[in-house]
Design a binder for these strands. Structure first.
Length: 375
DNA sequence: AACGCGGGGGC
DNA sequence: GCCCCAGCGTT
């Protein structure tokens, strides 16, 4: 009887989430590890909500090594909320140069102005208020709230998800919402302890240094005793690979219509990509379906294309699961054909109005091509 | 809920 | 070359 009960308990334990006792042991092991292994990053020395915010945003989707020098520079130029709020967008973009994801910098500045006006230059201290600030989403709000204010809110990032999947042996793909929920539940238990901010940081740093994507250092892991994959040595299978749609090859024909040294563009209203963006008349052909999509009236586009020159320009770009190769065509107009509603800009103006990196590539390589011809 | 953004590093 | 990453805003 005793044996049967015991067996039942064991099997429950391996199938369901961790028990309270385990959480306490994990908590202690984690913090012991963190005390001995935490990195002495410069941005951790002088901590205020502003610096934590900027650091967390800079580190989104960006490796520590790449972000650190630029983060340091950024914080020297904009040491506090008011300097950032009082800056121009150009200044912020220059300070952010090389970090990528430039919307992060624009939104950071927007957020600083928002806090100055709405909260009189003081960072709010509750999750809902933090979440209302531009550039602050679930992750960043939880990081600020736990690190700066000691709120017991869990962060869930790629590291947390990976650790949860391996520790709890969740047979779920990396981008499965259910795995995210499991990771959040796990972290909720863990941040219920004394030092939620350090707990959040510790788990992420563990993921960065020990429970790495490839070749994790399980022998150094404070969780090894409790880990349902590290024990078997089959952690490499977890989390299961992302489920993602098949890559589709796309051919994109772009028609540069030149009139008085300016180029015609229109807004992509119901085009497949770059909806709402300003771009040249375009035709898409998807490899798998053999369907064609035009950015403007097909009859007009086809007749113009037949008069245009195909340029020897090679532009490749990926948008999500689409591998795009761009063909660039050029046609000099003498006058604007009737029925063609385009706005005309010179190349610098066009570049200015184009956030899309695909179109930026096209304009840049067209300039190179043209300049090459002159030389 | 899906999609676009960007640069760096591992392989 | 391709894949992955300390997410967020927009649609």
């Amino acid at each position: 009887m005793f044996l049967i009960l015991r067996e039942k308990k064991l099997s429950q334990k391996t199938n369901s989430s961790l028990q309270l006792l385990d959480i306490k042991l994990l908590y202690r092991a984690l913090h012991l590890w963190f005390e001995q292994n935490r990195s002495d990053h410069f941005f951790r020395r002088n901590r205020n909500p502003y610096r934590v915010w900027v650091a967390e945003v800079a580190l989104q989707q960006t490796r520590m090594s790449a972000a650190l020098p630029k983060l340091q520079k950024f914080l020297e130029i904009f040491p506090n909320l008011s300097t950032l709020a009082g800056s121009t967008e150009d200044e912020v973009m220059r300070a952010w140069a090389g970090l990528g994801y430039y919307a992060r910098a624009r939104n950071l500045r927007k957020g600083a102005k928002f806090i100055m006006e709405r909260y009189h230059a003081t960072m709010p201290m509750t999750m809902p208020e933090l979440l209302g600030i531009p550039s602050i989403g679930d992750y960043t709000a939880a990081a600020i709230a736990s690190i700066c204010y000691g709120l017991k809110v869990p962060v869930v990032d790629g590291n947390v998800i990976r650790i949860a999947a391996r520790l709890l042996r969740k047979e779920l793909p990396q981008n499965d919402k259910r795995l995210f929920n499991e990771a959040e539940k796990f972290m909720q238990q863990l941040v219920a302890g004394e030092k939620p901010g350090e707990t959040n940081e510790a788990v992420m740093e563990l993921g960065q240094k020990v429970c790495t994507v490839r070749n994790p250092l399980c022998e150094k892991c404070p969780f090894l005793k409790y880990c349902r994959t590290g024990q078997n040595g089959d952690h490499a299978r977890f989390p299961l690979p992302k489920i993602k749609p098949e890559k589709v090859r796309v051919s994109w024909s772009i028609l540069l219509l030149e009139l008085n040294n300016q180029f015609g563009v229109h807004r992509y209203e119901s085009f497949k990509f770059l909806k709402g963006h300003l771009g040249p008349p375009s035709l898409l052909q998807l490899a798998n379906t053999a369907e064609s999509k035009y950015s403007l009236l097909p009859s007009i586009f086809d007749s113009l294309l037949s008069q245009a020159n195909r340029l020897a320009i090679k532009v490749s770009h990926t948008i999500t699961n689409h591998a795009i190769t761009v063909q660039v065509y050029h046609l000099t107009l003498k006058s604007l054909p009737t029925g063609l509603e385009l706005d005309f800009f010179n190349l610098p103006e066009l570049s200015e109005r184009t956030p899309s990196s695909l179109l930026q590539k096209v304009y840049r390589s067209y300039e190179n091509y043209r300049d090459g011809f002159r030389n």
